[in-house]
């Protein structure tokens, strides 16, 4: 691992001079590509199995589907009520995420822009929620929503998601608003715009990127949320997708395995996330790592 003998000081090649060649590194690089191949293969395998019937999956787990027969998907969508569950999931996901960002953005703006003792206290108040595990509020929240007749209701689930998401969103967006330049707002103020219209007409459009990121992160979180949904929802027609999947899995112990249907259900859970990721990948990774590397 000595410095390379040949001088290579041409600009742009700097990073190459630093690449070390050692057997350990070769093994590591091979392992990384192996992991990549394995991950993609797993995803592909899951999709392919969703097109086969249970008997052939069990007979030969490595087999390929003989035709693009969507029976499993149709069956899962209709009779296993994954269709309704998907709809519920979409509702719980989009409504809660939109309301969350809508409520968190003005609060985050205020807390991010004005620094005094009160906002310091309020920021701390919101941030403390980040460290509270969801199981702490599970039972009191259930009791509370039950008394308000909001259990087994998508409205109740949405409310729970909104409350739970406040700390992270206020935290993320406050950091984001702080990173926006003040100059435009000051210019608007000089032009006679009041503080409210400055926020609506200047700051919000500037912050669109951050707001969309927060929204998408929330969509991902709510789409995958399981524990609260499992606790708050009781009737099949209210189930979100993860709860429907769990209930489908439990029925199998009585009605026999339906692996084809199960794989179709798994695809329904994973696919929207894959689409979002392929569409917004970079912004997502940046959003999820934002403020952490700072």
């Amino acid at each position: 691992m000595t410095a390379p003998a040949k001088p290579r000081f041409a600009p742009g090649r700097a990073s190459q001079t630093l690449v070390e060649r050692s057997p350990l590194r070769t093994v590591g690089v091979a392992a990384l590509w192996g992991i990549v191949a394995l991950s993609i293969a797993t995803l592909l395998w899951m999709v392919l199995q969703a097109f086969r019937d249970t008997r052939s999956i069990l007979g030969d787990p490595w087999g390929l589907p003989t035709s693009a027969d969507p029976t499993n998907f149709i069956h899962a969508w209709t009779s296993s009520s994954f269709g309704l569950a998907t709809l519920n999931s979409v509702l719980a996901t989009l409504v809660a995420s939109a309301v969350t960002v809508g409520l968190a953005a003005p609060a985050a703006y205020y807390l991010g822009r004005i620094e005094n003792r009160l906002t310091g206290f309020l920021s701390l108040y919101f941030i403390l929620g980040l460290g509270i595990p969801v199981q702490v509020i599970l039972i009191p929240l259930f009791v509370m929503l039950d008394r308000a007749q909001l259990t087994d209701s998508l409205l109740g689930l949405n409310l729970a998601y909104i409350g739970l998401a406040m700390p992270f969103n206020v935290f993320l967006l406050a950091a984001f608003f702080r990173s926006l330049p003040l100059e435009l707002e000051e210019a608007a103020a000089l032009d006679g715009a009041n503080a409210f219209s400055t926020f609506v007409r200047i700051t919000l459009p500037l912050a669109r990127g951050g707001l969309v990121t927060a929204f998408i992160l929330q969509v991902i979180g709510n789409w995958n949320e399981t524990l609260l949904a499992l606790t708050l929802l009781q009737s099949t027609e209210k189930y979100t997708l993860p709860v429907a999947l769990i209930s489908f899995l439990q029925q199998q112990t009585y009605s026999g395995a339906d692996w084809g249907g199960l794989f179709a259900g798994l695809c329904l859970v994973v696919f929207p996330m894959l689409v979002v990721y392929l569409w917004l990948g970079r912004r997502l990774t940046e959003g999820l790592t934002m403020g952490m590397s700072k």
């Binding site: 409520l103 003005p106 205020y110 309020l122 919101f126 509020i137 409310l159 739970l164 406040m166 206020v170």
Partner: peptide, 21 residues
Amino acid sequence: LLVPFVGPAFLFYTVLFVVPA
């Protein structure tokens, strides 16, 4: 703008998170 901006988030968070905690 304290009340109109921070109020709603504060309310939701307090009722649905802090009170249960």
